[in-house]
Protein backbone atom coordinates (compact mmCIF):
# COMPACT_ATOMS: atom_id res chain seq x y z
CA UNK A 1 0.00 0.00 0.00
CA UNK A 2 3.07 2.22 0.02
CA UNK A 3 2.81 3.01 -3.68
CA UNK A 4 0.29 5.82 -3.77
CA UNK A 5 0.54 8.44 -6.45
CA UNK A 6 1.76 11.63 -4.84
CA UNK A 7 -0.65 13.72 -6.88
CA UNK A 8 -3.58 11.62 -5.71
CA UNK A 9 -2.55 11.64 -2.03
CA UNK A 10 -2.11 15.42 -2.05
CA UNK A 11 -5.70 15.83 -3.25
CA UNK A 12 -7.14 13.61 -0.54
CA UNK A 13 -7.95 15.10 2.88
CA UNK A 14 -6.80 13.48 6.15
CA UNK A 15 -9.88 11.35 6.82
CA UNK A 16 -10.05 9.88 3.31
CA UNK A 17 -10.06 6.12 2.82
CA UNK A 18 -9.87 4.01 -0.36
CA UNK A 19 -13.38 3.31 -1.74
CA UNK A 20 -12.29 -0.21 -2.76
CA UNK A 21 -11.47 -1.07 0.85
CA UNK A 22 -14.72 0.41 2.12
CA UNK A 23 -16.76 -1.38 -0.56
CA UNK A 24 -15.15 -4.70 0.43
CA UNK A 25 -16.09 -4.18 4.09
CA UNK A 26 -19.65 -2.89 3.63
CA UNK A 27 -22.88 -3.40 1.69
CA UNK A 28 -21.93 -0.52 -0.66
CA UNK A 29 -20.41 -0.87 -4.13
CA UNK A 30 -17.35 1.20 -5.10
CA UNK A 31 -19.60 3.61 -7.02
CA UNK A 32 -21.88 3.98 -4.01
CA UNK A 33 -18.92 4.70 -1.73
CA UNK A 34 -17.78 7.37 -4.19
CA UNK A 35 -21.28 8.86 -4.21
CA UNK A 36 -21.20 8.87 -0.39
CA UNK A 37 -17.93 10.77 -0.64
CA UNK A 38 -19.77 13.56 -2.48
CA UNK A 39 -22.22 13.76 0.44
CA UNK A 40 -19.34 13.53 2.93
CA UNK A 41 -17.50 16.42 1.22
CA UNK A 42 -20.61 18.61 1.33
CA UNK A 43 -20.98 18.09 5.08
CA UNK A 44 -17.29 18.12 6.02
CA UNK A 45 -16.54 21.37 4.18
CA UNK A 46 -19.64 23.20 5.41
CA UNK A 47 -17.93 25.05 8.29
CA UNK A 48 -14.33 24.10 9.10
CA UNK A 49 -13.34 23.05 5.58
CA UNK A 50 -10.78 20.50 6.74
CA UNK A 51 -12.37 17.42 5.18
CA UNK A 52 -13.50 16.00 8.53
CA UNK A 53 -17.02 16.13 9.97
CA UNK A 54 -17.09 18.12 13.21
CA UNK A 55 -20.10 18.02 15.51
CA UNK A 56 -21.28 21.50 14.43
CA UNK A 57 -21.23 20.36 10.80
CA UNK A 58 -23.19 17.23 11.68
CA UNK A 59 -25.77 19.36 13.53
CA UNK A 60 -25.95 21.78 10.62
CA UNK A 61 -26.65 18.93 8.18
CA UNK A 62 -29.28 17.37 10.47
CA UNK A 63 -31.08 20.46 11.72
CA UNK A 64 -30.01 23.32 9.39
CA UNK A 65 -28.62 24.84 12.59
CA UNK A 66 -25.06 24.26 13.79
CA UNK A 67 -25.87 25.21 17.40
CA UNK A 68 -28.89 23.00 17.96
CA UNK A 69 -28.10 20.56 20.77
CA UNK A 70 -29.92 17.26 20.78
CA UNK A 71 -29.15 14.26 23.00
CA UNK A 72 -29.85 11.74 20.25
CA UNK A 73 -27.82 13.53 17.57
CA UNK A 74 -24.96 13.60 20.11
CA UNK A 75 -25.30 9.85 20.60
CA UNK A 76 -25.29 9.20 16.83
CA UNK A 77 -22.22 11.43 16.39
CA UNK A 78 -20.37 9.65 19.21
CA UNK A 79 -21.16 6.21 17.77
CA UNK A 80 -20.10 7.26 14.26
CA UNK A 81 -16.84 8.62 15.72
CA UNK A 82 -15.36 5.13 16.02
CA UNK A 83 -11.85 6.41 16.87
CA UNK A 84 -13.29 8.70 19.55
CA UNK A 85 -11.21 11.66 18.35
CA UNK A 86 -14.06 14.18 18.09
CA UNK A 87 -14.52 14.05 14.30
CA UNK A 88 -16.13 11.66 11.83
CA UNK A 89 -13.66 10.55 9.16
CA UNK A 90 -14.82 9.28 5.78
CA UNK A 91 -14.27 5.59 6.61
CA UNK A 92 -16.20 6.00 9.86
CA UNK A 93 -19.02 7.72 7.98
CA UNK A 94 -19.35 4.88 5.44
CA UNK A 95 -18.98 2.03 7.95
CA UNK A 96 -21.56 3.63 10.27
CA UNK A 97 -24.07 4.42 7.51
CA UNK A 98 -23.75 0.80 6.43
CA UNK A 99 -25.80 -0.16 9.52
CA UNK A 100 -28.64 2.00 8.11
CA UNK A 101 -28.63 0.32 4.69
CA UNK A 102 -31.95 -1.40 3.83
CA UNK A 103 -30.08 -4.66 3.13
CA UNK A 104 -28.19 -4.76 6.45
CA UNK A 105 -29.38 -7.60 8.73
CA UNK A 106 -31.83 -6.48 11.40
CA UNK A 107 -29.60 -7.95 14.14
CA UNK A 108 -26.98 -5.29 13.36
CA UNK A 109 -29.61 -2.55 13.55
CA UNK A 110 -30.88 -3.91 16.87
CA UNK A 111 -27.33 -3.96 18.27
CA UNK A 112 -26.61 -0.41 17.08
CA UNK A 113 -29.88 0.90 18.57
CA UNK A 114 -28.98 -0.74 21.89
CA UNK A 115 -25.64 1.08 21.97
CA UNK A 116 -27.45 4.35 21.18
CA UNK A 117 -29.78 3.90 24.14
CA UNK A 118 -27.08 2.62 26.53
CA UNK A 119 -26.18 6.24 27.33
CA UNK A 120 -23.60 5.43 30.00
CA UNK A 121 -22.05 2.49 28.18
CA UNK A 122 -22.82 0.11 31.05
CA UNK A 123 -24.01 -2.76 28.85
CA UNK A 124 -27.65 -2.31 29.82
CA UNK A 125 -30.36 0.34 29.63
CA UNK A 126 -31.27 1.50 33.11
CA UNK A 127 -34.44 3.17 34.33
CA UNK A 128 -32.72 6.54 34.81
CA UNK A 129 -31.29 6.46 31.28
CA UNK A 130 -34.70 5.73 29.82
CA UNK A 131 -36.27 8.53 31.84
CA UNK A 132 -33.52 10.92 30.69
CA UNK A 133 -34.26 10.03 27.05
CA UNK A 134 -38.02 10.44 27.53
CA UNK A 135 -37.45 13.88 29.09
CA UNK A 136 -35.18 14.80 26.16
CA UNK A 137 -37.76 13.85 23.52
CA UNK A 138 -40.51 15.69 25.42
CA UNK A 139 -38.29 18.76 25.60
CA UNK A 140 -37.49 18.49 21.90
CA UNK A 141 -41.19 18.14 21.03
CA UNK A 142 -42.13 20.95 23.43
CA UNK A 143 -44.56 18.55 25.10
CA UNK A 144 -45.35 19.06 28.75
CA UNK A 145 -46.07 15.98 30.84
CA UNK A 146 -46.20 15.67 34.60
CA UNK A 147 -43.43 13.74 36.32
CA UNK A 148 -46.03 11.09 37.23
CA UNK A 149 -46.93 10.65 33.57
CA UNK A 150 -43.25 10.31 32.61
CA UNK A 151 -42.73 7.75 35.39
CA UNK A 152 -45.75 5.82 34.12
CA UNK A 153 -44.34 5.70 30.57
CA UNK A 154 -41.00 4.45 31.88
CA UNK A 155 -42.68 1.91 34.20
CA UNK A 156 -44.90 0.59 31.46
CA UNK A 157 -41.94 0.23 29.08
CA UNK A 158 -39.96 -1.66 31.70
CA UNK A 159 -42.93 -3.95 32.35
CA UNK A 160 -42.87 -4.83 28.64
CA UNK A 161 -39.13 -4.98 28.00
CA UNK A 162 -37.43 -5.96 31.29
CA UNK A 163 -38.50 -9.57 31.17
CA UNK A 164 -36.55 -10.81 34.18
CA UNK A 165 -37.63 -7.79 36.22
CA UNK A 166 -34.15 -6.85 37.46
CA UNK A 167 -34.60 -3.15 36.67
CA UNK A 168 -32.31 -3.23 33.62
CA UNK A 169 -32.89 -3.90 29.94
CA UNK A 170 -30.00 -6.07 28.79
CA UNK A 171 -29.03 -6.76 25.15
CA UNK A 172 -30.99 -10.04 24.98
CA UNK A 173 -34.14 -8.45 26.39
CA UNK A 174 -33.74 -5.54 23.96
CA UNK A 175 -33.39 -7.98 21.07
CA UNK A 176 -36.65 -9.75 21.98
CA UNK A 177 -38.46 -6.47 22.60
CA UNK A 178 -37.26 -4.82 19.36
CA UNK A 179 -38.06 -7.95 17.34
CA UNK A 180 -41.63 -7.87 18.68
CA UNK A 181 -41.92 -4.13 17.93
CA UNK A 182 -40.21 -3.61 14.54
CA UNK A 183 -41.62 -0.07 14.30
CA UNK A 184 -39.00 0.87 16.92
CA UNK A 185 -36.29 0.23 14.33
CA UNK A 186 -37.79 2.31 11.54
CA UNK A 187 -35.20 5.05 12.06
CA UNK A 188 -32.44 2.47 11.63
CA UNK A 189 -33.11 2.13 7.89
CA UNK A 190 -32.43 4.87 5.34
CA UNK A 191 -34.06 4.11 1.95
CA UNK A 192 -31.85 6.90 0.47
CA UNK A 193 -28.87 4.57 0.71
CA UNK A 194 -30.36 2.32 -1.99
CA UNK A 195 -30.25 5.19 -4.51
CA UNK A 196 -27.17 7.04 -3.38
CA UNK A 197 -25.56 7.14 -6.84
CA UNK A 198 -28.74 8.71 -8.25
CA UNK A 199 -28.73 11.34 -5.52
CA UNK A 200 -25.06 12.25 -6.14
CA UNK A 201 -24.44 11.70 -9.86
CA UNK A 202 -21.43 14.02 -9.69
CA UNK A 203 -19.43 11.12 -8.19
CA UNK A 204 -18.81 10.01 -11.79
CA UNK A 205 -16.69 13.11 -12.44
CA UNK A 206 -14.45 12.35 -9.48
CA UNK A 207 -14.51 8.59 -9.75
CA UNK A 208 -11.31 6.59 -9.77
CA UNK A 209 -13.23 3.38 -10.46
CA UNK A 210 -13.57 1.92 -13.90
CA UNK A 211 -16.92 0.13 -13.36
Amino acid sequence: MGCVSSKESRRRPPGYEDPNTLARETTFSVNEVEALYELYKRISYSITKDGLIHKEEFQLALFRNSNKRNLFADRIFDLFDLKRNGVIEFGEFVRSLDVFHPDTPVEEKIAFAFRLYDLRGTGFIGREELKEMVLAILNESELLLSDDAVEEIVDQTFRQADMNGDGKIDPDEWKVFASKNPALLKNMTLPYLKDITMAFPSFVLNSGASD
Binding site: L39, I43, L62, F72, M133, I137, A161
Partner: peptide, 25 residues
Amino acid sequence: KPESMNAFALISRSQGFNLGNLFEK
Protein backbone atom coordinates in the same frame (compact mmCIF):
# COMPACT_ATOMS: atom_id res chain seq x y z
CA LYS B 1 -52.58 2.31 24.74
CA PRO B 2 -49.56 -0.01 25.15
CA GLU B 3 -47.95 1.45 22.01
CA SER B 4 -48.49 5.04 23.17
CA MET B 5 -46.89 4.14 26.49
CA ASN B 6 -43.77 2.73 24.88
CA ALA B 7 -40.88 5.05 25.73
CA PHE B 8 -38.75 3.72 22.88
CA ALA B 9 -41.49 4.48 20.35
CA LEU B 10 -41.47 8.09 21.56
CA ILE B 11 -37.69 8.38 21.57
CA SER B 12 -37.28 6.89 18.10
CA ARG B 13 -39.18 9.85 16.67
CA SER B 14 -36.44 12.32 17.64
CA GLN B 15 -35.18 14.63 14.90
CA GLY B 16 -31.72 13.64 16.11
CA PHE B 17 -32.34 10.18 14.68
CA ASN B 18 -33.64 11.46 11.38
CA LEU B 19 -30.47 10.84 9.39
CA GLY B 20 -32.49 11.21 6.18
CA ASN B 21 -31.91 14.95 6.69
CA LEU B 22 -28.22 14.44 5.90
CA PHE B 23 -29.25 13.69 2.32
CA GLU B 24 -31.36 16.81 1.86
CA LYS B 25 -29.74 19.77 0.15
